[in-house]
């Protein structure tokens, strides 16, 4: 496996591979999110308890679940970068951090606009909401650590250690609604048993969850390509590219 994987640790090939994958991720993301959002807003049935306010779920749950998935992706990349010293993995981790921060912000914000009409408050300091806020701070910490060092090998090491330590927060977010009593409702989608949601609501929700995942993938590829160029400015192939495209 390592023999097969190794060529992609070469910056130029990683850059090209990311460019080849990008259109697929972008098209899938756009198509899925457009479908899921229109379906959720216009065609999914109204909830008998929450009325139409529940339609926030079609962006809230995708953002919240993908904010955790993106964090795991970032932490795994950082781990690979730290242990096997693969620089491309460090660059991938640095590319995911700002995306994850925006997705986490969206999860918190849409949660607040849903909480206000349903719970009567924008915010409570309970376990689910607080641990998700901690996730936002972890992302911001990783971004700032990576930005604070001129030497990006050192920067990736510092940010990577924070990212890996922060993984402890992920199960806390996931199980917070079971471990502590909370205003937040328990999860509606269950993998092992039947979901507590009618199919007409579940399908657009799942479409948007996959759509958000693809979008995070596409944005990671875009930022990864820029990061590869920024870290390899001395290499001839990057210099050639800069002369062709950056001189204008």
């Amino acid at each position: 496996m390592w023999k097969w994987l190794h060529p992609y640790a070469d910056p130029e090939r990683a850059y090209q591979l990311a460019g080849k994958l990008l259109p697929w991720f972008s098209i899938l993301a756009l198509g899925l999110i457009l479908t899921g959002t229109i379906w959720g807003l216009m065609f999914a049935p109204t909830d008998y308890q929450q009325g139409d306010s529940y339609r926030i779920i079609f962006i809230h749950v995708p953002a919240a679940s993908m904010s955790m998935a993106a964090y795991m992706g970032m932490a795994i990349s950082a781990f690979i970068g730290l242990v096997w010293q693969i620089k491309a993995a460090d660059w991938a981790a640095a590319s995911i951090a700002p995306i994850g921060a925006v997705i986490t912000f969206i999860a918190l914000f849409t949660g607040a606009t849903w909480g206000k009409p349903m719970w009567g408050t924008w915010w409570v300091w309970d376990a689910r909401l607080t641990s998700e806020l901690v996730l936002l701070f972890l992302y911001l910490g990783v971004i700032s650590l990576y930005a604070s060092f001129e030497d990006k090998v050192l920067a990736a090491r510092a940010a990577g250690i924070l990212a890996i330590v922060g993984v402890i927060n992920i199960p806390i977010i996931k199980y917070s609604v079971e471990w502590w009593s909370s205003l937040h409702q328990p999860s509606t989608i269950k993998i092992t048993e039947e979901s507590a949601m009618p199919t007409e609501m579940l399908i657009p929700l799942l479409i948007n969850i996959f759509g958000f995942g693809m979008m995070i993938g596409a944005l990671t590829l875009v930022r990864f390509r820029a990061e590869v160029l920024a870290r390899n400015g001395m290499r001839p192939w990057v210099r050639k590219l800069a002369q062709e495209q950056g001189a204008a």
Binding site: P98, I99, V102, F105, L219, A226, G233, L241, A242, G246
Partner: peptide, 21 residues
Amino acid sequence: SLAVLVFQSVKQKNKVLKQIA
């Protein structure tokens, strides 16, 4: 916020190439 993120991410590559040039 997604639009801002997409716009900023896409612009990044040209910014880097310009700096190198």
